[in-house]
């Protein structure tokens, strides 16, 4: 068994946490080569080589790969795939865009959001927003899968894998081009990899009141999340959404403020190690999953909490 793991690259940087977690999953299947593809990614390649348990790092450094657009990336990966039994990547927005296209090119199915690996052909994945877990066996010659990173502990550092450059024949594609990135600027940890997450829901009441959630997050060194209800109401941007249709997180501490705990939200955070809920409705479903529940008015409780921390 040989596995091609696609590193998650953000600009020129390696998303080390997501890649190391997917590596931990990939390593269960066999020897792992990591593909680092992008433009100006030599530092990222060195970092990937430092992860423990990597056989080789393959570097594809070319302008055409600079924005990780799906068309050239899928072309590159599909070209390499024939040498491997598995092609795997973390289930980031970037690789959820690319890897199903790779599978389509190879005429194989995709295994999305894998949370468990039983053997080389058998995988567990959530369906219905995590309300059921399906075990599926793949009959495809090459298994293409994305790994839900929250389900795996990261592979440690301490490796020194050899780095090999691979030739990229630039596909002269006018079909797609990058225009701009509009990334949320925040001096806070990234939501999907943060150790602590503080999320606000509809109970927060307004965009202005969301400052309360941010104050608590800053006190805890946490990332800020939001329920879909809060996003729909315009209190928080969509990239902060935690849930079935947003991000799936599993931090050491998750604080849900003014969140009732709809099925779709629980699907995105119920694997957190410790859950704290603050809500004025004592019957809110969030309390059924919270380790510590505080029934009360968040506008009193949150400022008091900020003060006492």
């Amino acid at each position: 068994m040989t596995v091609l793991l696609i590193a998650e690259i953000n600009g020129t940087r390696l998303e080390a946490d997501a890649t190391a977690k997917a590596l931990a999953a990939a390593a269960r299947l066999g020897a792992v080569d990591i593909l680092v593809a992008g433009e100006g990614v030599s530092t990222a390649a060195n970092e990937a080589a430092g992860l423990a348990g990597v056989a080789r790092v393959l570097v594809a450094d070319h302008a055409v790969l600079g924005r990780q657009l799906a068309e050239p990336m899928a072309e590159l990966i599909a070209g390499l795939a024939g040498r491997y039994t598995h092609v795997i990547g973390p289930a980031t927005a970037g690789l959820k865009n690319i890897l199903p296209r790779v599978a389509g090119r190879l005429d194989v199915m995709i295994l999305s959001d894998v949370i468990g690996i039983l053997d080389a052909e058998t995988f567990e994945r959530p369906i219905y927003a995590g309300n059921a877990i399906q075990t599926v066996r793949s009959a495809d010659p090459i298994k293409v899968a994305t790994i839900r990173t929250a389900a795996f502990a990261p592979a440690p550092r301490g490796g020194s894998a050899p780095i090999e450059a691979i030739e990229v024949a630039p596909a002269a594609s006018a079909a797609s081009h990058w225009v701009e990135d509009r990334l949320s600027v925040a001096d806070r940890p990234e939501l999907s990899s943060a150790g602590v997450v503080v999320s606000g829901g509809r109970g927060v009441g307004s965009k202005e009141n969301f400052a309360l959630i941010e104050q608590l997050a800053d006190k805890l060194g946490a990332a800020v999340g939001a329920s879909r209800a809060a996003v729909d109401a315009g209190y928080a941007p969509n990239d902060r959404q935690v849930g079935q249709t947003g991000k799936v997180v599993a931090p050491a501490l998750y604080v849900a403020v003014g969140i009732s705990g709809a099925i779709q939200h629980l699907a995105g955070m119920k694997d957190s190690k410790l859950i704290v809920a603050i809500n004025k409705d004592e019957d809110a479903p969030i309390f059924a999953v919270a380790d510590y529940g505080l029934v009360g008015d968040l506008f009193q409780a949150v400022p008091e909490l900020v003060e006492r921390l």
Partner: peptide, 24 residues
């Protein structure tokens, strides 16, 4: 189909914890 569904199960239930009386 390329995938065979072996089994479909409910996710492990998370047990609720305790309610606390105050922020302190």
């Amino acid at each position: 189909p390329r995938l065979t569904v072996v089994t479909t199960v409910e996710p492990p239930a998370r047990k609720g914890g305790v309610k606390v009386g105050s922020v302190a």
